[in-house]
């Protein structure tokens, strides 16, 4: 039954290609496919013609069952079209309308066909609707997927951009982390930090998490892995900027950071200086105003 309907539609398409194609193109143009100049009319024409042929062949061989192997070429073409339109900035409805706008020309052709009974026309319209809906949804799915791929790629780029390793002093590095730490990002951060340790021969790295909104068990594990890897290379890590509520959450979660941690970056820096055999000492201020003994000196003069 389904197979019969499939070959019926296939022969209908073959017989009426000359009218279906221009009608379809006209509808697509009306829907605004060409408006922004993202694809040319010639391109649209060849895409439409190509798809109509693939659909006809699929119908003839595989009936109206979209999961049939005969539909692979047509689906592959739709997938390709969907991906390229996603990257060209088409909206989802603009992309899906490529398939959905084929309905009307097909129905028109059916209605014009004198060889079919009313009943046949009704059942063929139903089959066609189901078929094109499925193909349209398939197009949307691929569209969605390719947008997700774009998002993932951008996330990766953002992750790389947002983790600068800064040098505080000879042999002392700081990594100010901002934002949520997921596995993907931690890997980038970790590689970045470790490579910089090698490049500048750093002895101590301070990981500052003031800008990290929350620390769960997983984030803590990521941090500890980074610390462990740095130690294997011969560098020490300090963690700073653990905010009060984060410290509390960590205790509640039972997360332990077995590293030296300080509440502020300044404290951690002081520890780092001490560990590398340096100290910060107060000297007389140059601007004079705030230092009492210098003021006295001036009065005397």
């Amino acid at each position: 039954m389904a197979g019969q309907a499939g070959s019926d539609i296939a022969s209908l398409v073959s017989r009426n290609e000359a009218t279906i194609l221009p009608e379809w193109l006209e509808l697509q143009k009306k829907a605004g496919t060409l408006h922004t100049g993202r694809i040319s009319e010639g391109e649209l024409q060849s895409q439409s013609k190509n798809f109509l042929h693939l659909l006809r062949d699929a119908l003839a061989q595989g009936g109206s069952d979209v999961s049939n192997g005969a539909y692979e070429p047509a689906k592959a073409m739709l997938a390709e079209l969907s991906r390229s339109r996603a990257s060209q900035g088409f909206s989802p409805s603009e992309t899906a309308s490529f398939v959905f706008s084929l309905k009307q020309p097909l129905f028109n052709a059916l209605n014009r066909d004198k060889s079919l009974s009313g009943e046949q026309i009704a059942s063929t319209i139903w089959t066609t609707t189901v078929l094109l809906d499925e193909l349209g949804l398939f197009t949307l799915e691929i569209f969605q997927k390719s947008r997700e791929e774009v998002i993932i790629r951008q996330q990766r780029e953002i992750a790389e951009l947002s983790t600068p390793v800064v040098k505080l002093w000879d042999g002392i590095l700081a990594l100010p982390l901002i934002g949520t730490l997921d596995s993907q990002r931690t890997q980038v951060v970790m590689e970045n930090l470790l490579q910089t340790i090698v490049d500048v021969e750093a002895e101590i790295a301070i990981i500052d998490i003031t800008g990290v909104p929350m620390v769960d068990t997983l984030t803590a594990q990521h941090l500890l892995k980074t610390v462990a890897a740095a130690r294997l290379m011969g560098a020490d890590c300090l963690i700073s900027g653990i905010r009060p509520q984060i410290a509390q959450t960590m205790v509640h979660l039972g997360v332990e950071l077995n590293v030296i941690s300080k509440s502020s970056l300044a404290d951690a820096f002081a520890v780092a200086l001490r560990q590398t055999g340096r100290a910060v000492v107060k000297t007389k201020r140059i601007d004079g105003a705030a230092v009492p003994d210098k003021k006295i000196g001036r009065q005397e003069a």
Partner: peptide
């Protein structure tokens, strides 16, 4: 004292 471990090696060992 073990010296000169590469970053990629250190990450892998930890993993």
């Amino acid at each position: 004292v073990v010296v000169g471990m590469r970053p990629a090696v250190a990450i892998t060992l930890v993993e």
